[in-house]
Design a protein around this nucleic acid. Structure first.
Lengths: 346, 346
DNA sequence: CAAGTCATGGCAACCGCTTGTCGTCCCGTG
DNA sequence: CACGGGACGACAAGCGGTTGCCATGACTTG
């Protein structure tokens, strides 16, 4: 009797009102209700006002699912991060979410535990749901990313991939500043504790270090690679401690902090014996002791700009800009760097 | 010619295959394809196998939107956090996401910047999309939460709300352990730096402190309330420094760390002059100097258990358990607590 | 051998919203 | 006064699945 099809359409008290209910209450067609909301001007102003009023009274809310089905407009964006527990991402997520919300989008944050396999699975799951994707420090191969990118508009963060819009920190300049800072403190032999081989940022940082060393006429030495964690940094401490460098730049803040702790454990004092510089200025860089001098990445801006770039590329007809966006880094000087006292056991 | 209705149904090369394509390729009805996937056993095993094979070849993927529209099964869960940049949440998010993924759900993390207004807006946006909600440290009123909860299955984290499933840390026990620890270190006058008035956890912690103080026969004194941030803790430092307490328990780790820095700035040494204990054991508690003794919350477990509880409540017919789930806290002793040396300027 | 049972696949009606198309009514114009 | 053209609403076909019900045919059973 009440059920005509497989679904209940009877007057269920707890049912949420649809455009059909509004239409009936207004004496117009459902399509008119739809247009009253989505196509201003297409329906008579008075009619539209009446519809809106009735909709309000009924507590009508458009069903985003139903809207998305025919149009594909889910108003969802995905942000894939390699590790949510990495403080590097906190501000990035915040920035991205702010930008998304401003444009009336919802951000879906997916954590992939540093695994390319999980990343692929997460994307597979999320892709049909979202209109665009921001890949934060993706662990996937370039080609895998390219395949992805032709399914949905994509922006990559902290990585450059020709043909795909990307947003990165200007770490070349940042590295240069860090080196100048160390050189000004009379360091002449500087180490670099490398991060994961696969990391695009690591390559850039090391290259920038070598170039800066050339320009400033100091020596650089590479350590590692270290895992991008506290433990990874700590492991590098012995090698650094035994070397002749008087200052070290680490792949990122986590490694830098781990290194400082490792050095402390080995009896090497920071900054008296060795100065340490990190990258990113994550939460914790200021907390540790000594507080960490670091090349601060504009984290919130990175997230925000990535989303804005993504949205811009989604709406414009023209192919997205291909030049990577370079956001400025800034050297934050704290306690972990100091003037060189003497050459250590040269 | 090609377009019959408002949408293109022609053979577009780049179109993603649907059950209709699979059905045609198999010579069966779309409904059979649908059932082959969703209702194992309902269709003949051979037919099902053939359908699956063809689907595989065609690269068919069910469209989650289309599936969700009639059924309401979006496979999405929302986790609302008061502030994504708060390290308290990192592990919670991770745990929640793991549990969600295990159950083939995707987690939608919404950040509400500590604002009840934003929280309500975020929920309004996400609610029609998700099947259930975990409220992490909600800033909304009890009644607002209850209204929410009758629209979608809800679990609250770090808060108890009669009639709504909740998961919390056993901070009463944790507080007791912290007090016993301090008393064992001969502290007899202990302070509590309170958190936000509106915080449910704050009330619980303060109450547990008083009870423990009674039982252990020591005095407690309340400071604050402080904002739950580093700055908030730092502001409380003067009051604490001028008081007669020899040990302080802070509302959370952020406040504790801020307090330590404030004390340091005021020339009060931790732990020599004052011992400090925090709550939660966030990232950073171990990094700061001195490293922080804290009542560790089982963060990942909290997130994981909240999601599991939510999922359990969603599938079972019976009303969800009402007793709040108590997850054990553990006292992590580090450098910020030490034996009382002498009574400070009594 | 007739009737009842069960397994299996197909039909078609939904979910709620969007949108191309068409009919109607009203107005202005030659 | 007839006709062309807007403005506005209604109609209905989709989007891609799910699912109640029915038809068919094979198999069981008395």
């Amino acid at each position: 009797m009440t059920c005509r099809g497989p679904y209940r359409r009877e007057v269920d008290e707890h049912r949420v009102p649809t455009i059909y209910d509004v239409a009936k209450a207004c004496g117009v067609a459902p399509s008119t209700v739809s247009r009253a909301f989505s196509r201003p001007g297409r329906v008579n102003a008075e009619t539209a006002a009446r519809i809106r009023k009735v909709a309000e009274e009924l507590g009508y809310r458009a069903n985003p699912l139903a809207r998305a089905l025919p149009t594909g407009k889910t108003s969802l964006l995905a942000l894939v991060v390699s590790d949510v527990t990495n403080p590097f991402y906190f501000e990035i997520i915040r920035g991205a979410e702010l930008a998304a919300n401003e444009a009336d989008y919802t951000l879906l944050v997916a954590d992939v535990y540093e695994s390319a396999v999980v990343e692929r699975k997460a994307l597979e799951r999320a892709l049909p749901l979202v209109e665009g994707v921001v890949l934060g420090t993706s662990r996937m191969s370039d080609s895998a990313i390219r395949v992805m990118a032709q399914q949905r508009p994509t922006v990559v963060l902290n990585r450059v991939l020709t043909g795909i819009p990307s947003v990165i920190t200007d770490n070349a300049r940042g590295t240069r500043r860090a080196m100048e800072h160390l050189v000004a403190l009379e360091h002449r032999s500087i180490g670099y504790v490398a991060g994961p081989e696969a990391s695009w940022a690591d390559g850039m940082r090391w290259r920038a270090m070598r170039e800066a060393a050339d320009a400033l006429d100091v020596r650089v030495q590479r350590f590692g690679p270290a895992a991008p964690t506290l433990a990874g940094g700590a492991e590098a401490a012995t090698a650094v401690g035994e070397s002749a460098v008087t200052a070290v730049v680490a792949y990122n803040d986590l490694v830098a902090i781990g290194l400082m702790r490792g050095l402390a454990a080995a009896g090497v004092r920071v900054p008296r014996d060795v100065s340490v510089v990190g990258f990113d200025n994550i939460f914790g860089a200021e907390l540790c002791s000594p507080s960490l001098t670091t090349v601060a990445a504009p984290l919130a801006a990175l997230g925000r700009y990535a989303v804005q770039t993504l949205l811009a590329g989604m709406t414009s007809r023209t192919p997205p800009q291909v030049r990577p966006a370079l956001l400025p880094a800034e050297l934050v000087v704290r306690e972990s760097t100091a003037r060189r006292v003497r050459r250590r056991r040269s």
